[in-house]
């Protein structure tokens, strides 16, 4: 089974967020980038589990600059067989999806996995866009996945529950929590990753149809009002009269 996993780089969650150039650009100074947890913990590990069960190959693809190669090596260390880096810095999901679909289009993958969203921009659009560009079915936010007899059997997260789906391969699926358990790269994996193939592909020229004009920080909280532990009726009164939430 031939599997492609889309991996992205995001700022570490504890990063302090700031902006530059009149708040029009994210300030990456001092920001530590990590593999997007949904891609690393769920999509990649599920791909490896399927390979262990059914045989085949797991390729990871990343659209990003050369500085992100340590993250690609990390995915190889966890167990991917080979990697592709599309050499561009995408400014939108639309660009990323086009670059990935362009590469994947000629490769006959049976399964393309992405994370449910990147934890920075949280748009969750790349998988959906790739599926349309390749005219494949798409399942968003799958929390379980198995492949049996050429069918993908997966749970799709819906409001207040899940739906169990059966879909003929090939298919594009985005992974949410529950799909797999995080794996840590071991020493052998890290050593082997150094010699695994990493192909660099030049990007298609692209114009995006979304662009971020500016960023703003949320208004600061007014500060917490402490309520005496013996006066819960006072809290209830405030929530009703002042905030009107109950």
């Amino acid at each position: 089974m031939k599997i492609l996993v889309c991996i992205s780089a995001t700022p570490d969650t504890t990063s302090k967020i700031s902006f530059k150039n009149n708040d029009s650009e994210f300030n990456t100074d001092g920001i530590q980038f990590i593999l997007n947890p949904y891609d690393e913990w769920y999509a990649l590990v599920k791909a490896l589990e399927l390979k262990e069960k059914l045989g085949g190959t797991v390729t990871v693809i990343h659209v990003g600059p050369v500085q992100n190669e340590p993250m690609i090596r990390k995915a190889l260390a966890i167990g991917a067989d080979d990697a592709v880096r599309v050499n561009s810095t995408p400014s939108s999901s639309y660009e990323t999806a086009h670059q990935i679909a362009h590469y994947a289009g000629s490769q006959n993958y049976e399964l393309i996995l992405s994370g449910k969203e990147t934890i920075d921009y949280q748009s969750g659009e790349v998988g959906s866009m790739i599926s349309e560009l390749l005219t494949l079915p798409y399942v968003a936010f799958a929390s379980q996945l198995d492949i049996q007899n050429g069918l993908a059997i997966c749970n799709r997260d819906i409001e207040g529950g899940v739906e169990v789906l059966e879909i003929k391969l090939p298919v594009v699926i985005s992974a949410s929590k529950g799909m797999a358990e995080q794996r840590i790269a071991n020493m052998k994996g890290i050593m082997m990753a150094k010699s695994k193939p990493l192909v660099i592909v030049e990007p298609l020229p692209m114009a995006s149809n979304t662009s971020i004009l500016s960023y703003s920080l949320p208004p600061a909280k007014k500060g917490v009002k402490m309520i005496d532990a013996d006066h819960m009726d006072e809290l209830v009164r405030m929530l009703h009269e002042h905030d009107k939430v109950i």
Binding site: Q122, S123, E125, S128, E132, V139, T210
Partner: peptide, 23 residues
């Protein structure tokens, strides 16, 4: 924005050759 939108807004925007914004 719900589980239905998550599955289709990206697709639809490609089909309509237009931009898409979530949430």
């Amino acid at each position: 924005y719900n589980s239905t939108a998550r599955g289709i807004t990206g697709r639809l925007s490609i089909k309509m050759k237009s931009g898409c914004v979530t949430g």
